[in-house]
Design a protein around this nucleic acid. Structure first.
Length: 297
DNA sequence: CTTGTTGTTCCCCT
DNA sequence: AAGGGGAACAACAA
């Protein structure tokens, strides 16, 4: 669920409260989310947070040796978090000092005691399929899916974007959300971008003309930077609802399009769905549902 | 008996 | 008009 703007806002928030300060302890309640064992998570305790940032939709906390570490300490240990679909981060000024129960059925997977004394955050996973993932590495390149990430969608130039589209045989919706092609955009913001750019999600990426690519490139930047502007500086607990209020088509099936008033429609697949406005995006055409379509005949 | 994988065919969409 | 890409279905494996 969290995409580039939310991850950027979370990184900004946590960076502001932890940079230069120590990590006192890390509690792991779910071994399943921890994808690495070397260095061990206990190695983070006593280290200093150098910075918190994002790479694509990954949250990246870099740590340096603390005052009590000797010369043999790792020069850099990086905590990488991918929130995936149902993962989230909860910052607390009074973090519980009781470690979350390992294997417990609560949503807390990881607790990091960092920032000012008593502060820190929990990383939670609320979904049924546990896709939250955490890595502790010496270099972010050790995380396979970061190493294979496409260019960051906000760092990418217009010509680079044009070349990516020209080289992609698939549909624009899939090209925008494939992290190996382009890093940072997920289902929600791709719905928003395509709606603003007035493109069908099923449009072929490589057959867009130059004018359409120009519009799409500018729209990606404006949609994402608008969202970042709204979210930055907000408390983490407010980000979800704040994100939602900015959406114009995504998750608004049945509601009127804020641009033309037509009814927002949905195309549902087995395991996901997207929303679009027929008048703005498909020449008024209502697209077929892809889920169980044959059983309905 | 259930669950996962693979290949085939059909359909939607631009 | 061709081709991408999902879904259903069957066959088979574990």
């Amino acid at each position: 669920m969290p995409e580039l703007p939310e991850v950027a806002a979370i990184a900004d928030y946590v960076d502001g409260r932890t940079a230069g300060l120590p990590i006192r302890r890390v509690d792991v309640a779910s071994l399943a989310v921890l994808k690495t064992a070397d260095p061990p998570y206990s190695a983070l305790a006593g280290r200093i947070v150098e910075s918190v940032s994002r790479i694509g939709k990954y949250l990246v906390m870099r740590t340096l040796p603390g005052p009590d570490d000797d010369a043999a300490a790792e020069p850099l240990v990086v905590l990488v978090i991918h929130l995936s679909r149902a993962g989230w981060l909860r910052w607390s000024d009074q973090l519980s000092q009781t470690p979350p129960r390992p294997g417990g059925k609560g949503p807390i997977a990881l607790r990091v005691h960092c920032g000012l004394p008593g502060e820190g955050f929990d990383v939670t996973e609320a979904g049924t399929q546990k896709r939250l993932a955490v890595w502790i590495v010496r270099d972010v390149g050790e995380v396979e899916r970061i190493a294979t990430l496409g260019p960051d969608v906000l760092a990418m130039g217009r010509d680079e974007f044009g070349a990516i589209l020209a080289g992609s045989s698939g549909r624009i919706k899939n090209v925008l959300t494939d992290q190996r092609t382009l890093a940072g955009v997920g289902n929600a913001y791709s719905d928003e971008i395509l709606h603003t750019a007035k493109l069908s999600p099923f449009a072929s990426a490589k057959t867009l003309d130059d004018a359409q690519v120009d519009i799409l490139y500018d729209t990606i930047r404006s949609v994402l930077t608008d969202a970042i502007t709204r979210l930055e500086g907000q408390e983490v607990a407010r980000l979800k609802s704040e994100k939602r209020t900015g959406l114009r088509v995504h998750a608004r099936t049945g509601l009127p399009c804020p641009v033309c008033g037509d009814t927002i429609r949905e195309v549902a697949f087995t395991d996901r769905s997207f929303q679009y406005c027929p008048t703005c995006q498909t020449g008024g055409k209502v697209l077929a549902d892809r889920r169980m379509s044959r059983l309905l005949k």
